[in-house]
Each structure stands twice: as C-alpha cells, then as structure tokens.
C-alpha cells in the first residue's frame, strides 16, 4: 500500500479531508507533524509521497507558506530534496503550493532553486475568495496527472487570499508556461477568461504547475473538497493520478 505523509504544522487545516481522499482510494495516509520530522521521530524515507495540504501554516501572517517553508529548510530540506530527486511525488495544495514555491521546489525550471523564482501573491481582488472554479488539464511534463485527459475540464473549488502566480521574469514565465503548466482556469466553455473564472488574476490563468521533472505538483484549487460526484467535483482523479504514479515507480 502506498504510504502518504500528510504533512502538517500549526495552522494546517485541510489535512482531514486530504487524509480521507487517500484513504478512500485504499492508500495508507498518515499525519506527519513537522515537529516529528524535526525531532527525527519520523523519516521521509518511510513514505512514498509527501502531501502538503492547505491551511494557514503558522497563521501565514508573513506571506503564505513562508514560515512553513523556512522551518522545512532549516530542518529536513536535504531529505526532502533527496526525496524529490529520487523521483518520489510531492504535492502541495493551496498553502502547500505556496510552501513548495517558497522552497524553490516549484517551478524548479532548472531544478530546485536556492531562492524562490515565483510567488503566489495577493489576489487581484485583494480579498479571500472562496468559490467554485473550472480548471483545464494542460499538456505538460507532469507525471502525476497522466490519468486525466489533456483538455479535460475539471470542477474544483478554490479558497485563498494569495493565489496569483507570478514569475521572476517574462522569459522564465514563458518557459514554465510552455511545459510545466498542469491546470489553467477556464470558463464554462473551456476558454480562458478573466475574473471570476480566474479567481486571483494568476499569470496566463495558471491554477497549477509541476517541476521540470514532473514529480512535484502544486495547485491552488482543492481537489480534496471535490472528491465525490455529489460534491459536484472531479477531485478524485487527482488523487488517483498520484497513486498511479507511485505504483509505476515502486
């Protein structure tokens, strides 16, 4: 069974539904508190996937994900790096996406970067936005979403104040845009449109990206909140994709 580390610290708050999503697909999720890793009570090597759920880690009073990332960097960064370089999947949703960006693990156009090369900044509306979005699955190097057809439009909600993806420069942005964009916000006809379809003003309507190797995925929408059909969502497929990938490498 695939062992999933659901990483958390104070202020992480989507761990419960993320845990359930993996559980429903017969994987073996486990809550792992940052402190347990810092104190070496648990070790990343024991897991097949690291999943960083949404929330307001440490309150996010500085910048989304900044403190969580700083603490990871100060403690188990080497292990996490090795984990990624060995091809294991790392997924960040919402606050988890912010953490991965802060860590330089995304977009990681030329591999994990020392400094963040992108930023998830304040929404154009300057407000927290909780709303349903439609995201189109794009052709990319992502290995975790192979089960989802390219072009498919998935219905998955967002809830964040800092989700506008911007990059360090235009050239860099274009390169990421070309091959590492996994999901884009679209309207009901599948076309790229402005607000409210794109809830945050993200560059080229980007909702989710992967790293250059395709095994790290970050996205703002919350698939764990749209797992079931009666939730009117397509989140289940995202989790299935992650598990498919694990099976293919293990």
């Amino acid at each position: 069974m695939e062992k999933i580390a659901i990483l958390r610290m104070e202020g992480t708050n989507c761990e419960y539904e993320s845990y359930l999503a993996f559980k429903r697909l017969d994987a073996q999720p486990e809550y792992v508190h940052l402190k347990e890793l810092e104190r070496k009570k648990k070790n990343l090597e024991e897991y097949d996937c690291v999943f960083i759920p949404g929330g307001f880690s440490a309150g996010d009073y500085v910048r989304g994900g900044a403190i969580f990332a700083a603490r990871l960097k100060a403690s188990i960064f080497k292990d996490l790096k090795k984990f990624v370089e060995n091809g294991y999947p790392v997924v960040g949703i919402c606050n988890g996406f912010q953490v991965l960006i802060e860590l330089g693990m995304l977009p990681a156009l030329y591999g994990i970067s020392e400094q963040p090369e992108a930023c998830l900044t304040t929404n154009d509306s300057n407000r927290f936005e909780c709303r349903q979005t439609l995201i189109r699955h794009e052709r990319s190097v992502c290995k975790l979403t192979k089960n989802i057809k390219v072009g498919k439009i998935c219905s998955i909600p967002v809830a964040h104040a800092e989700g506008k993806l911007v990059f360090k420069d235009e050239e860099y942005a274009e390169e990421v845009n070309e091959k590492q964009v996994v999901f884009r916000y679209v309207d009901i006809e599948g076309k790229e449109a402005g607000y409210p379809w794109n809830p945050n003003g993200s560059y080229k309507n980007i909702a989710g990206i992967c790293n250059n190797e395709g095994n790290v995925l970050g996205m703002m929408p919350h698939p764990e909140r749209a797992f079931h059909k009666w939730q009117n969502g397509d989140g289940k497929e995202i989790f299935e994709g992650i598990l498919n990938y694990i099976r293919s490498i293990c």
């Binding site: 989507c14 419960y16 949404g54 927290f128 936005e129 909780c130 709303r131 439609l134 749209a226």
Partner: peptide
C-alpha cells in the same frame, strides 16, 4: 460577505451558501 469566508474547509459542505452556475 460569503466569499470571504471559507465555507468548504473540511470538505463536508454539501449544500453551499451560494448556488447555481459559477458566473
């Protein structure tokens, strides 16, 4: 008001405070 609140965290909100198509 409603959109500023996270009404879906915990993933168990079935009938949400706002309904209808996204637009």
């Amino acid at each position: 008001v409603i959109r500023q609140y996270d009404f879906e965290v915990r993933g168990s909100t079935v009938i949400k405070p706002l309904q209808g198509n996204i637009e």
